[in-house]
Design a protein around this nucleic acid. Structure first.
Lengths: 253, 253
DNA sequence: ACAAAAGTGTTAACCGTACACCCATGA
DNA sequence: TCATGGGTGTACGGTTAACACTTTTGT
């Protein structure tokens, strides 16, 4: 279906498919070149940047709605996903009329009404993602978390809340498992933590702690090619991780 | 307005007042006689127990909707409130037809449609609460958290999630400030923590830690009347608490 | 006087932090 | 060979956990 037709159908008959007044927005985190990134969409015509999002089908679980959005924007099926907050101020969609009318949406469309949005964040392996815009957007690309543009509506606020939630999650489960490729080095894992938390961590203490948690498996290979001493490669041992989690894991930096 | 008329109007015209498909459910925690309690409602006719909840007015912030519900059920205006999770499985309201038709709701009512519910938990001072049923319910009373009846729909699951969220919150802020009366003893505070966490804590270490956090003020009075040695009374010092929070507080048991 | 609960203090184990040294690699 | 980054070990200090003793109060 070409995107103009898809969009028209969406405006006119979307309320037959989707639950009105409720949307889902996804903060998709990736990690690349020592930077924490998020995937953003650029709206056609209005040129505004926003979070990838979607709507909930009438018989769909809200998590499945987020999974569907993720799949469409990244091409990935198996994704770590966490619902972190709901945003429901009646005036959260500032200048909605302006933005949507540019796209040809009529005043009485279901889209013009107030939406309560459920915020999810996702952790994905950067290299596996194939950014793919939706029919509302002309571009879909990664942005550095610390160099974000001004986003539409309250999306900057949603971003901020997602990052804070992610920071708390660092102490609950090994975030690196979802953000890094299968094999990674200890310095890479450390940079990930430092980037998310925004603090510096002592190299030696970090390694000690991570290894003490017991779910990292050191491989016999090393990462060659870079300058300087070749670091070991590690990977997560899922069995050990699950065993450790049952006993109550204590992260914390 | 008598409650039959109120109910009829609610069924027929509620969709003009409220956002469809979205509800709010509140887990109201109180602490009484060394037990953690929750306030539950008993539906008229069907006799099922459920969480107090409500709907969101068309121009109302979702938090305000929860605040309104709290006010109506407890009489309290100033309440600690936290949104903790959204429940949106399409089949979360099992046997909804049965429950609502008992109340005279027609199949095509807005109420019969699927609802996504936003879970909030509240911390209230037990003695200040005046339990007050809504027009759908015949009774509103406290239940021991560990002796709950079978609740309607997925409300038992919502309860469980609320308790787990509360347990995590113990390490973020002083929960006792909202659950205890202004003046309280150290053993009372300790029992509160033990009840929420479900673990035993050493009496002496608990006191040491709590006092070290620096926001408790020991009064010159003691709690008399009970058997045995009269314990000191304490109260939260809000200024010291806020100062301590800015420096980053570390709770944890 | 006694049991039960509350106030206070001491000790040892553990963990986080800081830091020093050596090794490997490419420029 | 030198600068840089990576691997390993140790020592100190603070926090937590375990535990003993005294005081108060009602029965």
């Amino acid at each position: 279906m070409d995107s103009t037709k898809e969009f028209r159908e969406f405006i006119l008959t979307g309320d037959q498919t989707f639950i009105p007044h409720v949307s889902v927005d996804c903060v998709i985190f990736g990690f690349h070149e020592d930077q924490l990134k998020v995937l953003l969409l650029k709206w056609k015509t209005s040129g505004q940047w926003c979070l990838p999002g979607g709507f909930i089908k009438k018989s769909e679980a809200i998590d499945d709605s987020a999974i569907r959005t993720l799949k469409e924007r990244t091409g990935l099926s198996s994704i770590f996903l966490k619902q972190f907050h709901v945003f429901g101020d009646p005036d959260r969609e500032k200048k909605k009329d302006d933005f949507l009318s540019v796209h040809g949406t009529k005043k009485d469309s279901w889209l013009m009404q107030r939406f309560i949005t459920i915020g999810y964040y996702a952790l994905v392996e950067f290299s596996k993602v194939n950014p793919h815009p939706d029919f509302l957007s002309e571009e879909c690309k990664w942005w550095d978390i610390h160099k974000l543009p001004k986003l539409i509506y309250d999306h900057n606020q949603i971003m901020k809340a997602a990052l804070e939630s992610l920071q708390l999650s660092l102490n609950e489960y090994p975030v690196g498992y979802n953000l890094l490729p299968e094999k990674f080095t200890m310095p890479e894992l450390q940079t990930l933590y430092e980037t998310i938390l925004g603090v510096a961590i002592d190299r030696r203490n970090f390694q000690k702690k991570m290894l003490s948690l017991g779910f990292l498996e050191r491989l016999k290979e090393r990462k060659t090619g870079g300058a300087h001493k070749a670091p070991f490669l590690y990977r997560f041992d899922k069995k050990k991780y699950e065993k450790a989690m049952k006993q109550g894991l204590k992260f914390g930096f």
